[in-house]
């Protein structure tokens, strides 16, 4: 039995919007349960000569939690240990999806701002970042998705909330591409090999949920009414 009466493989409600920041090249806003995350993508621009790489672009990811976004991190807006870690793992996950060698000597910046946190922000940030990168028109090899699995009361469940994360025996956030390559995998706690394989299969089954989520977000942007004046939708 879970704290909010969900089934073992049931996700919380997810809402995704794209193209909401005017000054960013691409942007996305995700509401995943009580998580609220804003992502802006800027670039590609010319990289400063000191950090420039000749044959490919640099990806810069900055994950930040706002003050009072969660009960634990309140009062800390400057990057803390946790923010630096998540920025690093997201950068490594996303740089396997972006075709960086298309933009030699360039830099692409991704700014992730967590307005409200309730468990699973790193996978939610990953999904929103992928949508924002598509919106920015940056070349992607494939789209990616991610869910955090975990062990609560001896059972493997998907999409842990904050309470389940704190009370459970383990937490495995996994991000992967549609073809099944694993881009991000972290483990906090103790989980057996069989349990891990079960969690991986449960996450794979949720692939279509995320593909449709991203597709619908772009459908809303490009097929919805323009600037509130009613236009015939083709």
């Amino acid at each position: 039995m879970r704290t909010d009466n969900r089934a073992d493989d049931e996700l919380r409600n997810i809402k995704l919007e794209v193209g909401i920041l005017n000054n960013a090249t691409g942007s996305a806003y995700i509401e995943w349960g009580k998580n609220k995350i804003l992502v802006g993508v800027y670039g590609p621009e010319e990289a400063p000569p000191a950090i420039e790489i000749q044959d490919k672009a640099i990806l810069k990811v900055e994950y930040r939690m706002t003050t009072f976004s969660s009960l634990e991190e309140h009062g800390k807006y400057t990057p803390n240990r946790r923010a630096i870690e998540i920025s690093k793992v997201l950068r490594e996950a996303l740089s396997n999806l972006v075709l960086l060698d298309k933009y030699p000597g360039g830099i692409i910046e991704i700014n992730i701002l967590v307005l409200q946190a309730e468990g699973g922000t790193r996978v939610a940030s990953f999904v929103a970042s992928v949508a924002a990168l598509i919106d920015a028109g940056i070349a992607l090899r494939d789209i990616g998705y991610g869910i955090s699995a975990g062990k609560v009361n001896g059972r493997i469940v998907l999409d842990l909330s904050k309470e389940e994360d704190n009370l459970g025996q383990g937490d495995i956030p996994i991000c992967m591409s549609r073809t099944g390559e694993i881009l991000l995998l972290q483990l906090d706690g103790k989980i057996s090999r069989e349990e891990f394989e079960k969690a991986l299969n449960m996450i794979r089954d949720k692939k279509d949920v995320f593909v449709n989520l991203i597709r619908e977000a772009f459908y809303k942007k490009y097929r919805g009414p323009i600037d509130n004046d009613l236009v015939d939708i083709i």
Binding site: G26, L99, K102, I134, D135, A136, G137, I138, A139, L140, R141, D142, I143, S177, R178, T179, V211, I214, R215, F218, Y222, I234
Partner: peptide, 22 residues
């Protein structure tokens, strides 16, 4: 979406050959 077809890297909308923005 990117990855739907082979060698598709950008978002595309039916009827318009160009990707939406790049």
């Amino acid at each position: 979406l990117p990855g739907d077809k082979k060698d598709q890297y950008y978002l595309m909308i039916d009827g318009i050959e160009n990707p939406i923005e790049y």
